[in-house]
Amino acid sequence: MAHRWTNDLTPADVTPKEVWLNRRQIVAGLGVGIGAGAIAGPGLAYTPDPSLEPNTFEDITTYNNFYEFGTAKEDPAKNAHLLQTEPWSITVNGMVDNPGEYTVEDLIGGFDIEERIYRFRCVEAWSMVIPWNGVELADVLDRVGVQDGARYVAFETVVQPENMIGVRRRVLDFPYVEGLRLDEARHPLTMMATGIYGEPMPKQNGAPIRLVVPWKYGFKSIKSIVRITLTDEEPPTSWNKANAREYGFYSNVNPNVDHPRWSQATERRIGGGLFQRRQPTLMFNGYDEVASLYEGMDLTEFY
């Protein structure tokens, strides 16, 4: 169960709550050795990498794209308190052995909640580093039982028009939908997250449960999930429906394929203030271990 992927940052690098409440100076480290990270802790030699210092809880929870709650970055923090998360029911259907209505507990109860510090790269060319808490999607898929022939996983975000100003304004064709190829969904990096910094998932970040796919642009990491469908056809995805020329199904972070309206070669790390230098964007957002998933594919065509 889980722990197939090892953080390149160790739990010791996660800032205790007392510290991050007024932190800025913590330097995160890069764990060394596959499989050793989680137990080795800070005793192991590690290279300090300031670029992997997690963003503050405040940055992560006040600078969001969650268009159901408005299009400005500060809108979700202002408006998402209206989101009703109790009760919460997730419909699992399609090509699964155990279809039905699941609570979050039904879906992930009993699995270890891991802490994973991931880079997060938005398609708008900004980025953060976020310490997520959650489980691997692969474990969830095993629990619901994926049938032979299923090739894709589709996800859907809740729609509560009375609570969601962006839904009433029809910013996108809601409900927001996303999808992954099954092998992407099963990759050990892909997680279902239920928290940040050890806190329950804030509503503006996609409470109570969301997807996190760190090598893809942030919009693939769909929030506040109410449906998971296993299918044999590539499912529609919201931004692709809105503008297919600009947003493809794959949307892997790729510094060599520009968005038609802006360059993806560099990114601005949030949290560095007005004079922060841009930094180069890494292929697959630095997660080279996923490269084999796309072997033989032209990533300019399948953007």
Binding site: Y63, W126, I270, L274
Partner: peptide, 13 residues
């Protein structure tokens, strides 16, 4: 405001 954090997490934008 941008210099002193009054414009949120991304003062440049």
């Amino acid at each position: 405001l941008g210099l002193t954090g009054g414009l949120g997490a991304d003062p440049v934008e």
